[in-house]
Design a protein around this nucleic acid. Sequence first.
DNA 1: ACGGATAGTATGGAAGATGTGACTAATGGG
DNA 2: CCCATTAGTCACATCTTCCATACTATCCGT
Lengths: 122, 122
Amino acid sequence: MHEEMRRAFTMLAGKWKLEIMWLLNQRTHRFGELRKQIPGITQHMLTSQLRELEADGLVVRTVFAEVPPRVEYEMTDKARGLGPTMQALTAWWEQYGHTLPPRPSARGRKPSGPAAPRETGS
Amino acid sequence: MHEEMRRAFTMLAGKWKLEIMWLLNQRTHRFGELRKQIPGITQHMLTSQLRELEADGLVVRTVFAEVPPRVEYEMTDKARGLGPTMQALTAWWEQYGHTLPPRPSARGRKPSGPAAPRETGS
DNA sequence: ACGGATAGTATGGAAGATGTGACTAATGGG
DNA sequence: CCCATTAGTCACATCTTCCATACTATCCGT
């Protein structure tokens, strides 16, 4: 049932989590790489999102005792099971992405909806 | 490369969008059905998330001229291409979901304190 | 000793996303 | 007349995220 799934949705519903997981699904990244790959994200947000993913058991954080410091983020085995999901998402976008409307995510919308089709004939 | 994908992430990054799309991927729902299926969501949020999905060309909104009103939400053909993604996500959760740590994400859906009741204007 | 590099933590005000109850519209039943 | 129903809308409250800045810690080069 989808009540079980709710946990999964919550884990991935963050504003940046899908993108982070998508990148980590390709390869291990270090902190600074993720920050460059995701323009617009701040250190603060990247840190907190990664911590949440780590707490959810999706990401492993490895600190190397080097100077300058190096921290790598890697998917766990569990999260690697998301590979097919990511591939399916990528394939979907390749197929349909370019057919979507230009930039409609703005809050404004058209004043009136389509004419109501009278279905049940009342 | 993945800059193209960013559009897809944005479209699905809303707090409730994955869950809504997962439900609509199964079948057409009317407004009230979605509201019951997604405990915790408010009318306001359900409306706005659906409007965004509609604006992104992922769902179709059909208003039936009946009383009481009936509005049905259905996936577009484009969004139906997400089927494999949803299936992969479901399969992943069935396989790994129960192995995840008890620690829920900090951003989890928890009820907030009682909002200060506003003075009903006289 | 100082600054550069990396990966953070901490703070604070602003912007944006989300949450809440109250309210509307049309119609049938009591 | 009043209530129930359904799918919203509205004004406002609160939570999350943004963004800049400041600070920590280590080692190397100067």
